[in-house]
Design a protein around this nucleic acid. Structure first.
Length: 570
DNA sequence: GCCGTTTTCGGCCCGACTGTTTTCAGTCG
């Protein structure tokens, strides 16, 4: 039983209680519990088995702890079963539609017997919704639109998509008249792996034409709202962008507010209230007097905290750490001394060893590892022992020609389904950096896959385990692997776990990176570049590491060459 | 249902927007 399964049960309970109009604070408790469990890196099921006290987890009390015990023991929750019986099955799904809350779901069900997305669509199409209490033409039209978006499944976008649009729009808007400051807030600023929309905040002098200019941005499909202080547009890719113009007096407070997360803000606001202050997007107030607002750092200091990096703002303990002066000193892009995974024309990369090295040199790296695929990756033209031997000599020749950067002989060797490596030890011994990875046969049980991987990395030739879960963000969930066991094995064998920086992967993800770090496992952050340009993707790995509370000292390729080589498993 | 540096009972974040109202409910972030 995974944490997300347990969290899912409590979310469902909350949804049903919501529709039934239960006590909203009781509902919030279930939602808080669901989120607390979903975000934990430690397995709750394992905690139960080890007899640990679940009530230690903030947001979990006696009642929910009891239900967790039941869920782990029996695989289900009787309370949820009863609740489900009490309502038509399709009702909770209706909450997923924008603009549909528990009250409307109940209203539509009570009056029109709408109990599924299909029925809602039919009723809206026939114009049956308008005329219900509180419903008019416009409300019905909005629901029709929301249904279309729901059907299109256009929910979230990869961080790289959101961030690159944000950067492009900001550069474009900076050229408007009177723009004094402009910044992206929201999940893009927190560097979440996916983003739902963009929030761009600006300070402008009177008479600025920023909103007119925004309407002329190339990628806009439609303007949703167009006012003097707030405009919203949908880009042709479907991403929504909100631009807000703020008075300088509240820019910092607004930046804080719109950066979120919601949970971080709730916690911060609760803290403000305890100090007799009121925190909103307009500032921090003592009575009617503003004590902070223009500057984000001062918003935090007003509630007695140091500034907290946006990547940490998830209410995952950052406020408590800030309070004790124990925030991590998060790793930065400039800490990186090398890149340890990249491919060349020897397999599926687009350029030669020398061209990759030249680009890495221009990025200021001290060293790189060239790590082409082993033969199991057929589509990439993976290397067998003989070809790898020749390729290693090619790496040496490139090193002879290029000064100023150390080019390490490496390979990305597959872990076969039985746990053996795809290349023999003799050739692996000649590689200075060996990354082990899984590229095919994902359909194994979790137990089998975990065994396969642990056997693979137990080979003393292996230094790093690459893209540890095999996921592709928004595309495939990854193969099943027991992350706790993997982390433990990595620590026991002295193998570093990779944070693959490719924005389609970000694997390890933030919470897993944090778990690994807490358990004393070393990390490697690498781009997995297949072209020189992809070496620039390192920043996404850094974002993920920062979200995982990772410091430079946790990352092997943030050390100088000599130290780095000394840290590799012998 | 959870929680406690005023509390084991009585609170639980705050404000804007939308669409429908004639003073506000519902939803969202």
């Amino acid at each position: 039983m995974e944490n997300r399964d347990i969290a899912g049960i409590f979310s469902q309970i909350a949804d049903i209680l919501d529709i039934k109009g239960e006590n909203p604070f009781r509902i919030r408790s279930y939602r808080n519990a669901a989120r607390a469990i979903g975000d934990m890196s430690e397995s709750v099921a394992a905690m139960v088995r080890e007899g640990k006290d679940l009530e230690e987890i903030p947001g979990i009390g006696a009642s929910i702890a009891g239900k967790i015990g039941e869920i782990v023991a029996t695989g289900s929750c009787a309370f949820l079963g009863e609740l489900r019986e009490s309502l038509p099955r399709g009702l909770p799904e209706l909450l997923r539609i924008e603009g549909m809350g528990p009250k409307k779901v109940k209203l539509f069900y009570d009056t029109l017997k709408i109990d599924s997305v299909d029925r809602l669509e039919a009723a809206a199409g026939k114009g049956e919704l308008k005329g219900l209490p509180g419903m008019g033409e416009k409300s019905e039209e909005n629901i029709i639109q929301a249904l279309a978006r729901y059907r299109a499944g256009q929910g979230r976008f990869k961080l790289s998509v959101g961030l690159e649009y944000a950067e492009s729009i900001i550069a474009f808007l900076k050229k408007a008249k009177g723009v004094k400051a402009i910044e992206a807030a929201g999940s893009v600023r927190r560097r979440r792996e996916t983003v739902g929309d963009l929030d761009i905040l600006a300070i402008c002098s009177p008479g600025s034409d920023i909103m007119e200019r925004f309407a002329g941005y190339d990628g806009i499909r439609e303007m949703i709202a167009h006012g003097g202080t707030k405009s919203s547009a949908r880009l042709s890719c479907g991403l929504q962008v909100d631009v807000r113009v703020l008075p300088p007096s509240s820019f910092g407070a607004a930046l804080q507010y719109f950066t979120g997360s919601k949970e971080h803000n709730v916690a911060l606001r609760t803290r403000a209230v305890r100090k007799g202050l009121k925190l909103s997007e307009y500032g921090v107030f003592k009575g009617r007097r503003a004590v902070a607002g223009p500057d984000e750092e001062k918003v935090y200091s007003a509630v007695g905290l140091p500034w907290i990096p946006p990547e940490l703002r998830e209410n995952h303990g950052e406020i408590e750490a800030a309070e004790k002066g124990q925030l991590p000193k998060l790793i930065e892009l400039k800490d990186m001394r090398g890149d340890l995974q990249m491919h060349t024309t020897a397999t599926d990369g687009t350029e030669s060893v020398a061209e990759m090295a030249e680009k890495a040199l221009s990025l200021g790296y001290e060293y790189i590892a060239i790590t082409d695929h082993s033969r199991a990756v057929r589509v990439a033209g993976g290397l067998d022992e003989k070809r790898l031997g020749r390729h290693l000599k090619e790496i040496d020749r490139a090193q002879d020609r290029i000064k100023g950067i150390r080019i390490l002989r490496g390979v990305e060797v597959d872990i076969l389904p039985d746990g053996r490596l795809d290349l023999d030890d003799a050739i692996l011994k000649e590689c200075e950096v060996v990354i082990a990875a899984v590229h095919y046969r994902f359909t194994m049980t979790e137990a089998d896959m975990t065994r396969r991987i642990i056997k693979g990395i137990s080979n003393p030739r292996v230094h790093i385990f690459g893209h540890p879960t095999g996921r592709l963000i928004l595309e495939r969930p990854g193969y099943p692997v027991n992350i706790e066991e993997l982390v433990k094995a990595a620590r026991d064998y002295g193998v570093a776990l990779e944070i693959n920086a490719h924005p389609d992967r970000l694997d390890l993800k933030d919470s897993h990176a944090r778990l690994a770090r807490e358990k004393g496992v070393r990390l490697a952050i690498s781009t997995d570049a297949h072209s020189p340009a992809q070496l620039d993707l390192m920043r996404y790995g850094i974002f993920t590491a920062r979200r995982g509370w990772v410091e430079a000292g946790d990352v092997i390729n943030a050390y100088p060459l000599k130290k780095f080589l000394g840290m590799l498993r012998k």
